[in-house]
Design a protein around this nucleic acid. Structure first.
Lengths: 327, 327
DNA sequence: CTGAAAGCGCTAACAA
DNA sequence: TTGTTAGCGCTTTCAG
């Protein structure tokens, strides 16, 4: 930096007091046009830039919101965070990227930033139930798809309906042996509702529910190994409802390897329906989440939280089935 | 918030001065074990959290780095920013997401955050040449794949080599009519080097170079319309070198629509080779960028810049061809 | 080893 | 309409 110019310097050059300079900076209070001009002139001459931190210290706000998600290197989270960033930006907030990588330490560290008042709020889509600080009531936190604590509003897609749509579609397609992939971790993951819908429909149709566990943070080739087993252990399978699109993709690969044609021999439906997936794999039939709407709702709720409004709420948004050729 | 506890409160409860409390907080200076314990005890009792902004005001640093890229909703940028976040995190920095959406206003706004000292540095992968502030020498900025100004170090993949690899491969495959897609904007985009390599090789092999313009920020269906034209206007085409993987994907779609089989009738090579693309579209043969290494290099250079080391440098990292079945 | 005091750069009562 | 003054919460000389 050159020498850093502060408000004092501006004031001195303009021949006014620091307070007056501050007033013209913030368009606040009564000012004569003459001083306004003088001060503006001085600011220009000195190339003055206000120091954001100093202002923040006084205001006790940074206009920064943290985004805690497992990773951004994934079609769903990438689109969701892009939408969140845009909504936040429009409200004057900037987004701090917090990729937790399912690492409790890292997640907690980002939570600290909030506690240390470097962040005005948090939108979380990852959650390690071990972390106690979440339970501190009244912190400005909003969750997406995860129940964090009963103090934290949750914005969520209608996962049950999504599971129902997918399963029903496979049934309507005439599938007799439908298998579901999901990941373990019973507590409060959004996927549980998808699985429940699947189980309910299967049971209503007197068919056995079979669920294969595919942990979220395993490397892709490991997941593929697990999914291949479906075809080894259940050669009769003729329908797969995957808990997300990348697993659906792996199912497609495994099916092809096993000599099945899709959709003739086996039908596959995924979940998420993010832009990138639709672009790269348009043939996949999937349940599409209302990503944009979820982002908007989350930001809206967060604003209320930051404003101190109590509002513990659950917001559930509708999903829809988008047609491909795999089911 | 409950009532906010400050260092004064801690000091009072521990029966020491604010200065001493600050010392134990920062493990600085000589302290007797007894006071250390007392102060720690008081901190625990009061559930003290230091105010990050106050500290920043003194230190004049926020440990925040801005990431300015067109969007994060894209396989390449998502992976790149994920890698950057991780590298920055390991160095103690947090990443502020700045999706410029090719909007000069938004890009400039993020640049302001740097000028206003809310950010310690910037890593930019988007660049609107209109913006003058970049030229202020000595700002801690590093660029990825874009020449911003001669004061800003650039980390880049070996785009020329990538273009060469791709074109050579198509030639080796026996393609007679190879077409390249790229986007307009001659100045300093990384894609220009890819195109140059293509043109050089075509000319060396006495073949005409044909380039179709596909603007970066058009919607995908528009891009598809443009790419379809290739098959209408040049039915003899038997090889396509796309400037990125999503365009390669569109070329694949257009080819199929036109009744071509890939790779029998037409061969296609993309560029980028991001994880997500590899996962969703593994059949695509493409030139893979060293995303991880680029992120590491950028963070390293940025650290030097922030430390005030002059170091105007260009760093070029090797690419490689990854095999799929489309070429 | 510890305390008093100054100051990081800005904002906002309160006077004038 | 403008200036004076007192902080925002923390760190760090400088004395003791």
């Amino acid at each position: 930096m050159e020498k850093k110019i502060k408000l004092d310097d501006v004031a001195r050059l303009a021949g006014v007091s620091k307070a007056t300079a501050s007033r013209v900076l913030n368009h606040r209070g009564y000012l004569s046009q003459k001083t306004i001009d003088k001060v503006h002139q001085a600011m220009e001459d000195l190339n003055y830039r206000p120091n954001a931190i100093a202002r923040q210290l006084y205001k006790q706000e940074t206009m920064l919101v943290g985004l805690i998600f497992p990773t951004i290197n994934n079609p769903y989270f990438a689109q969701l965070e892009a939408a969140l960033e845009k909504c936040l930006y429009n409200e004057g907030y900037r987004a701090v990227m917090g990729n937790s990588e399912n690492n409790a330490k890292k997640e907690e560290n980002y939570l600290q930033l909030l506690l240390d008042r470097q962040l005005d709020g948090l939108i979380v889509g990852a959650h390690n139930p071990e972390i106690p600080a979440y339970h501190k009531t009244s912190l400005p936190i909003v969750s997406i798809e995860r129940v964090v604590s009963n103090q934290v509003p949750v914005v969520s897609a209608d996962n049950y309906e999504g599971g129902r749509l997918a399963t029903q579609r496979l049934l309507d397609d005439g599938c007799q042996h439908i298998i579901h992939t999901n990941y373990p971790g019973g507590f409060a993951s959004p996927n549980q509702a998808r699985e429940s819908a699947y189980r309910d429909l299967m049971s209503q149709n007197d068919r056995p529910a079979i669920v294969y566990q595919v942990p979220f943070d395993e490397p892709e080739d490991q997941k593929l190994v697990r999914i291949r087993k479906i075809f080894e252990e259940h050669p009769e399978v003729d329908g797969i409802f995957a808990d997300n699109d990348t697993n659906a993709r792996l199912a497609l690969t495994a099916a092809t390897e096993a000599g099945r044609r899709c959709p003739e021999d086996i039908k596959i439906i995924g979940f998420d329906g993010a832009d990138m997936t639709r672009l790269l794999l348009p043939e996949l039939t999937t349940i599409q989440q209302p990503i944009q709407e979820m982002a908007e709702a989350a930001v809206e709720l967060l604003k209320e939280k930051i404003a101190g409004e109590p509002a513990v709420q659950y917001r559930t948004l509708p999903v829809k089935l988008v047609e491909g050729t795999t089911a």
